[in-house]
């Protein structure tokens, strides 16, 4: 009997040419989905809506300004949320019981009440404090608490409560050995947090923060209730005059989808960046994924080979 290793070296292995498993389910479901989409198309084209006017409103000045303000309040609100949220997370993990209770109480209140109520509370603050007196600064509350500031406070402070929990999870995900190593080198708690723990927590914090961003983009539509000139207020203002309610809601829908799509793509690449070095293989970009999915139809071999 010959040695198996020797044998393998002499005879090169023949490549397997197997007939791939047929995925009939994919064809059936594709046909079904196309049929449903066609039905939806037919229904919408016969609906009592003037589709031709929708593109006209898309770049209406009021609508564009509204979309710009939606973007602005989202970015600023998120900024407040991230900075304050990180601070709250560090406070929550503090050994000082007063500080950690304050952080707990903050999260309890702002996570426990609806954003709409919070926005209304800020906007109507002048009802109970007609005068703002900060000692060095004095003014009528109504002049200070503009729709913009009320929106920023409402969205930002509410977001901070959620970001605090996200950051806390990130901080706690960092191995305790890292803190010990930093302490053993003579670093104090604050410096260890800043230089060692937070940079490593980022990988866990970034993905849910992207989600929060997109959530905020949509939640900001609530600010129309307190007269902030964002996208939702722009379209309701117009439709209250010309009564083209559905047409303008379609305009808002399209704009929100455009904004969230742009940010989803951005989020994907930011996450991909933070995974470098830690994940064994970077995830496919949408283009690579689409190409691979199309291949499954032409070749029949599924994406099953690659989990």
């Amino acid at each position: 009997m010959s040695d198996p290793v020797d044998n393998a070296a002499k005879v090169p292995p023949e490549a397997i040419k197997a007939i791939p498993v047929r995925h009939y389910g994919r064809w059936v479901s594709a046909v079904l989905v196309l049929a449903l989409l066609a039905l939806l198309g037919v229904a919408l084209s016969g609906a009592q809506i003037q589709w031709s006017t929708v593109p006209d409103y898309l770049d209406y000045e009021t609508v564009l300004r509204g979309a710009g303000n939606t973007l602005l309040i989202t970015v600023l609100g998120m900024l407040v949320g991230v900075v304050l949220g990180t601070l709250l997370a560090v406070m929550r993990l503090s050994k000082n019981p007063v500080v950690s209770s304050v952080a707990w109480g903050y999260v309890w209140f702002f996570r426990g009440t609806p954003v709409l109520v919070q926005l209304m509370l800020w906007y109507n603050l002048a009802l109970i404090f007609p005068l703002l007196d900060l000692g060095f600064y004095k003014d009528e509350m109504n002049d200070v608490m503009t729709p913009f500031l009320a929106s920023l406070l409402g969205l930002g402070l509410n977001e901070a409560a959620y970001m605090a929990e996200i950051s806390r999870a990130g901080i706690q995900s960092v191995d305790e050995g890292q803190t010990e190593a930093a302490h053993a080198l003579g670093m104090t708690g604050g410096r260890t947090m800043r230089r060692i723990v937070l940079p490593q927590a980022m990988r866990v914090i970034v993905p849910p923060t992207g989600n929060e961003f997109i959530n905020m983009l949509k939640t900001s539509s609530l600010c129309f209730a307190i007269q902030f000139d964002e996208l939702m207020k722009a379209v309701t203002d117009i439709s209250s005059r010309n009564l083209a309610v559905m047409e303008l809601l379609m305009v808002a829908t399209i704009w929100y989808l455009v904004l969230t799509t742009v940010f989803s793509v951005g989020q994907f690449y930011v996450e991909r960046y933070f995974q470098r070095g830690s994940a064994r293989a970077l995830p496919d970009t949408p283009l690579q994924k689409a190409r691979r999915n199309l291949m499954t139809f032409s070749h029949g071999t599924g994406s099953g080979a690659k989990p």
Binding site: G177, Q178, A181, G186, G277
Partner: peptide, 15 residues
């Protein structure tokens, strides 16, 4: 602690 160096079983380098 500055004057005391420590080496850990699991290295604990800053990744």
């Amino acid at each position: 602690r500055r004057d005391i160096g420590m080496v850990f079983q699991r290295f604990n380098l800053f990744p």
